[in-house]
Design a protein around this nucleic acid. Structure first.
Length: 582
RNA sequence: GAUCCGUUAGCUCAGCAGGUAGAGCAUCUGCCUUUUAAGCAGAGGGUCCGGAGUUCGAGCCUCCGACGGAUCACCA
């Protein structure tokens, strides 16, 4: 046991050892570093800082709690900052206030020696203003609430300038708790995220729509074009898919008779990861009966205007170096109109091969798997999308691209679909929903053909959904809005990882250095183990990549070159090692 | 997946062209009763990502690998 303890402490940094020792010291002094009892809080940093200047008769007896974020010790008096959920506030501790009697332990030992940056304490005292003009809590009594054993990164700030910032994205995302403690703006981003969602939810509820939950585990991953994650249900012995969209289930609920349903949902797509894509992401989908996509456009612009107003109190916001105005109404343009404007080509009424030719003239790579819809989508994505900075509805997509969307009332080649583009990115996607079950079945079948042509994103046929439509779905309009991207936009964050608390990361690998013992474990004799790495095999698994005879030659060659006084290796011996490698 | 860049103390980063590994903050020991990135004096702290090679000698040069970032391509 002693040995284990010693081994553990050997891996700890000096500062971690010091903190563990302080922990023991606290216990010896009869102070529980992790007390059970609640600590009464009657004031918060933000309130004190806001209200005390107006009325300094307030906060005569505060009880606050938080984490120590900095300390300035000057002999018998100290300043420190504690941080609670609302922010930081300075505290002032005077030895003879903390310890009115003879025993100065609480100040001299506990506060000055045994507490560290990162520890949680509770304080009781009163607010005052220092000579330097800073609102501060004069502490009369403090309580240790939780000891911190790891040093936090120390981020300092002066005149708005940040020093030694904790910025490494990998560490920040993996240890978001540290990021949140140390980087205040990160905490704010997530508060804003919550407000955005809350604002949208209020908007929907106020309209009388029902917030619902639908399956995440789906036997058929429908409603979008994407590669799903697969899992397996043991009792049913069937594959189940993590949903890529919730559209088909929400429409079933409209069939069931609800006027409007919405769901803030996590969707999962087994695709690439970068600063715009996380394998799980949040969308809100809304379906409303007896409406069409024109109505939905108005709803969308009104809702976004409200969300932005709720967040900023104005409709114009800065995103990167641009200013975006969410004042309704937004601009509207058809997709073919946009393509004509940006490329000069009018694709109206053109055949697949004609469009392919134009795409190639525009320098867009095409392949046989691409149908008409996909080609148009490519041209738009390549030549137009990035130019829509101000909120713009792009409408009337070709029917091939939108298998769940109703045909356009004036042109059966098109659909009543719009996407909302903001800052050059798609933010929302909406339809007048297809409720003709026969047309829907045909469209699914066309998807099947696309799949056969090699489009791995074409949709599966969901027969139960078709059955639902056959019972009759009222005319309905639906929309899906990417919450993560909306939050990125409204909080001016450059990557999706900045708006998701715990973005997906590669597993953290403790890279254990390979030692000769690793080779001894697979049966390599001790006298060889120390040389085998020198001969170019950096780990047991690298042996497995070579032929036995090649290993033999290399090792015996190494033995000769280095004039090692150890026995020559035989093939059988090496074969034995290889068998022991997992 | 491709290209480029990076990995040095708990944190943020230097390290001059191979020649004993540095700074600030943090930590530890002193001093200091209203400080402001507090200050002053001193101390400790490193697998320079891992491995191999070149060399008398590698943080630095070469090769292999790991991890990360940026950009590009595909996808919301």
């Amino acid at each position: 046991m002693q040995k284990i303890l010693k081994k553990m402490t050997e891996q700890l940094s000096e500062q971690e050892i010091v903190r563990r020792e302080a922990l023991e010291q606290l216990r010896k002094l009869g102070i529980n570093p992790y007390p059970q009892a609640m600590y009464e809080v009657n004031a918060y940093a933000k309130d004190v800082l806001e209200k005390f200047p107006e009325d300094n008769s307030l906060f005569r007896e505060v009880s606050m709690a938080g984490r120590i974020m900095s300390r300035r010790i000057m002999g018998a008096a100290s300043f420190a900052e504690i941080m609670d959920s609302t922010g930081r506030i300075q505290i002032y501790l005077k030895r003879d206030d903390i310890c009115p009697g003879e025993d100065k332990t609480m100040y001299n030992t506990v506060f000055k020696k045994l507490l560290d940056i990162g520890d949680f304490i509770g304080i009781k005292g009163y607010a005052f203003v220092t000579k330097m003009g800073e609102i501060t809590i004069h502490v009369k009594e403090f309580t240790v609430l939780a000891k911190s054993l790891r040093p936090l990164p120390i981020v300092k700030e002066k005149d708005g300038k940040v020093y030694d910032a904790f910025t490494d994205p990998d560490q920040r995302y993996r240890q978001r708790y540290v990021d949140l403690v140390v980087n205040e703006n990160v905490k704010n981003t997530f508060i804003q995220r919550a407000r955005i969602i809350q604002s949208m939810r209020e908007f929907f509820i106020e309209k009388g729509y029902l917030e619902v939950e639908t399956p995440i585990l789906q036997p058929i991953p429908g409603g979008a074009a994407a590669r799903p994650f697969v899992t397996h249900h043991n009792a049913l012995n069937i594959p189940l898919y993590l949903r890529i969209a919730n559209e088909l289930y929400l429409k079933r609920l409209i069939v069931g008779g609800y006027e409007g349903v919405f769901e803030f949902a996590k969707d999962f797509r087994n695709e690439g990861m970068d600063r715009f894509h996380n394998p799980e992401f949040t969308v809100v989908e809304l379906y409303v009966a007896y409406k069409d996509y024109l109505w939905m456009m108005e709803m969308t612009e009104k809702m976004l205007e409200k969300v932005v107003l709720d967040l900023y109190g104005k409709t114009k916001i800065k995103v990167g170096d641009k200013e975006i105005d969410f004042k309704a109404p937004f601009k509207r343009q058809t997709i073919l109109g946009a393509i004509k404007e940006h490329t000069g080509y009018d694709l109206t009424g053109k055949s697949e091969s004609e469009i392919r030719e134009i795409a190639e003239k525009l320098g867009i790579e095409t392949d046989e798997g691409m149908g008409k819809g996909k080609l148009i989508d490519e041209i738009f994505g390549e030549k137009c999308e990035s130019s829509f900075i101000q909120p713009t509805f792009i409408m009337d997509y070709p029917v091939e691209m939108s298998p769940l969307c109703k045909r356009h009332r004036d042109n059966p080649e098109l659909t009543e679909r719009f996407e909302l583009m903001v800052n050059g990115k798609e933010l929302a996607n909406a339809y007048t929903e297809l409720n003709d079950p026969i047309d829907q079945r045909r469209r699914f079948e066309e998807q099947l053909k696309l799949m056969e042509r090699g489009d791995d994103e074409a949709m599966f046929i969901d027969y139960d959904f078709l059955r639902a439509l056959e019972y009759g779905m009222p005319p309905t309009s639906g929309i899906g809005i990417g919450i993560d991207r909306l939050v990125m936009l409204l909080t001016n964050q450059p990557s999706i990882q900045e708006v998701i608390f715990f973005p997906q990361m590669k597993p953290e690998k403790k890279v254990k250095p390979v030692t000769p013992e690793d080779f001894i474990k697979i049966g390599v004799p001790e006298e060889w183990a120390e040389h085998i790495m020198g001969a170019g095999y950096s780990s047991p698994s690298t042996l497995k990549e070579s032929k036995v005879t090649a290993i033999q030659q290399k090792l015996n060659g190494y033995r000769k070159k280095k004039k090692l006084d150890i026995p020559v290796l035989k093939v059988e011996e090496i074969e034995r090692w290889l068998k022991n490698i997992e």
